[in-house]
């Protein structure tokens, strides 16, 4: 086991052939994928220093490090999410507007669900707004983020 932290400045890619290498996992929260600096331990105990300057986001499954013997892969932790299943495109618009006002990132899944991380206020707001919010455990993927609203602070 290496004792020095491994410095990661960018992801190496997602679908690399990792062969027989040992796969170690670095778990992060969904809201940490765009952090430029972060020091964390992998599940195997290896310290990793994320130090990126490109303002990009990591995706679930990104390979961060590859050596002869091992691979470090990033995994995004699941969390409680508010899930809405709008009946029409117009409803999608209304929901996105309501949530977008709070500047919280909105995620659109392949099943045309609108997902957003759970918080008590947002849930209450959607409930009072007459929507039918469900709370389900999901992984929020950066690539599913809707970019049309004021996501960035």
């Amino acid at each position: 086991m290496l004792s020095e932290p491994i410095e990661v400045t960018h992801a190496l890619g997602k679908d690399l052939d990792t062969g027989q290498r040992n796969v170690d996992v670095l778990e992060v929260e969904w809201h940490e994928t765009a952090k430029s600096r972060m020091r964390r331990k992998t599940k195997g105990g290896q310290e990793v220093l994320i130090n990126r300057t490109d303002r990009g986001s990591f995706q679930d499954g990104d390979i961060l490090y590859l050596s002869d013997k091992r691979v470090i892969m990033l995994r995004i932790k699941s969390c409680d999410c508010i899930v809405l299943r709008p009946a029409s495109l117009q409803e999608v618009g209304t929901i996105c507007f309501e949530i977008g006002n709070k500047h919280v990132p909105i995620f659109m899944t392949e099943q045309e669900e609108v997902c957003v991380a759970y918080d008590g206020y947002l849930y209450q707001m959607l409930l009072s707004g007459g929507f039918a919010p469900a709370i389900e455990e999901r992984v929020l993927h950066p690539f599913q983020m809707v970019k049309a609203y004021g996501n960035m602070a």
Binding site: E29, W30, H31, E32, A34, K35, H103, V104, P105, A117, D119, G120, Y121, L122, N151, M152, A153
Partner: peptide, 9 residues
């Protein structure tokens, strides 16, 4: 009423 992502961003 403040999500971590907003602080992070």
């Amino acid at each position: 009423n403040i999500q971590p992502i907003l602080i992070q961003n």
